[in-house]
Simulated assay, not measured.
Amino acid sequence: MRVDVYPKRVFTFVESRPGEDIYEIRVMLRDVPGALAKTANVIAEAGINIKTSIVFASLPNEKQGFWTAFIDVSNSKIGIDELTEKLNALDVVLNAQIVKPKPAAYDIMHFPIQHGEERAVVMPISLLKNLFEEIEKILTPSGFAAVFYNAGKRSGENFAKYYREKFNPKTKEELAELLFLCTGAIGWGRVETYSLDLNRISGKVRLVGNIEGAMRNKGAEPVCHWTRGFLTGYLSIATGREIEVKEIKCIGKGDEYCEFQLEAK
């Protein structure tokens, strides 16, 4: 199935326009149909604009969840205290809190960030680029490539084992597909096309917007050593065989996308 894709903003911060009065609201809701609609209706009736929001379960075994949003109250018909009272009076609301983050509208109501069951961090690409560049100053080009390839390979092996245990895929092809779905969802890069024969150990994977290639300075050689290592480790576990992955096209050397070729070792 092919769908249109658009950039996704992570719920960490919201830009405010001149004249807006931004607050953050967190509502703990009962896990019942219509809970979010009832809550949003109170906010709409108050003339408050919802800038952005997220909804997620608090704990897997609890029948409740959070709805958190940045709201603009500049045209609100009621005050913050009255809005809080109205929300807490709803039968679907367990608790509602509204705060004003200062001096900028950053999320101050949730920590830590989680990706699935594991803690995660949101790092702008500029900071990650600085990290790579400083490490590159210390190591020789071959040493840099080896360190990041080996780190990627180990990460790929561990990730494949984790996915196999968590999702119990029926085939090695399904295990590979899980990785390709994940890469776009977490912002690593979007697998645009792939043609893999995991029985004969051959094929190619095309990765568009690969963050590793995008943040590196342009050069004559492929630079995505961590990504290449990750694919090697992951697909080796998926196939049960030692494989080799080569990067044959790379954003880091001016190509439109990164492309990796899979071969038997």
Rank of each mutant, 00 (worst) to 15 (best):
K8Q: 14
R9W: 11
V10K: 06
V10T: 07
F11Y: 14
T12Y: 12
F13Q: 07
F13D: 13
V14E: 07
V14A: 12
E15R: 13
P18M: 02
G19W: 05
E20H: 03
E20F: 03
D21P: 09
D21G: 05
D21I: 08
I22A: 05
I22N: 09
Y23A: 04
E24R: 08
E24D: 13
R26K: 14
V27W: 03
L29G: 00
R30W: 13
R30T: 07
D31Y: 05
V32P: 12
P33E: 00
P33R: 02
P33D: 02
G34M: 01
G34R: 02
L36C: 03
A37T: 12
A37K: 14
T39W: 00
T39V: 02
A40C: 12
N41P: 10
V42N: 00
I43Y: 04
I43A: 03
I43E: 04
A44E: 15
A44P: 09
A44T: 14
A46V: 01
G47T: 03
I48H: 01
I48C: 04
N49F: 07
N49A: 09
N49H: 08
I50N: 06
I50M: 04
K51H: 05
S53H: 14
I54H: 09
I54K: 11
I54N: 09
I54M: 08
F56E: 14
A57S: 15
S58P: 13
S58I: 11
L59T: 11
L59A: 10
N61D: 15
K63S: 15
Q64G: 11
Q64T: 10
Q64S: 10
F66P: 11
F66Y: 15
W67L: 02
W67K: 00
W67E: 04
W67A: 00
T68D: 10
A69D: 05
A69H: 08
I71A: 01
